[in-house]
Design a binder for these strands. Structure first.
Lengths: 84, 84
DNA sequence: GAGAATTTGTACGTATGTATG
DNA sequence: ACATACATACGTACAAATTCT
């Protein structure tokens, strides 16, 4: 059955991932620096913890960030980013 | 789920992922067939839904399975598996 | 050294949406 | 009409390691 619905909204976690990724590639979050904590992300973007975590997990899988337990999540060197 | 590991308790989701992966590579779950649903997995292994999902997400990232909404999760063709 | 706060990781709970059979 | 099944989304709690007071 064809889905006749108009374009559904992209998932929250995907929108959040793209926003954070944009801040990385634009330099707002510089390589080797710490990005906001999961808690801060939930507060700034008003999303749940799992949603924020989903976005970060995806960014990690893409090679943009590297979470370090107890310390924070850091922007990976640009050499580790995709197609770079 | 029973923790089969001694001292350095590995995460439940990781143990579950390895168990399911073993069933795939051993042929218990054959390529292009459907593996048990998330709900069935939670019941057989006595884990939470998120834990089962984490294991499946990892298997998907590795290329062993492909979840299809509304239908189920299917074993990928062996050609798509790692190092093969 | 003790204790509190922070931060990621793990784990479970619950509800809703959407598509399929 | 109903059950199944994956996806999304919020909530809660505890563990381990680090940092700060």
């Amino acid at each position: 059955m064809i889905n006749w619905d108009p374009a559904p909204e992209r998932p929250l976690w995907l929108q959040l991932m793209e926003t954070l990724r944009q801040r990385i590639v634009s330099g707002t979050y510089a390589p080797r620096t710490k990005i906001p904590s999961l808690k801060q992300i939930t507060q700034e973007f008003e999303v749940g913890l799992n949603t924020a975590r989903h976005a970060i997990d995806d960014l990690e899988a893409q090679g943009y960030v590297r979470p370090v337990p107890s310390l924070g999540t850091f922007v990976a060197p640009a050499e580790e980013w995709p197609r770079g």
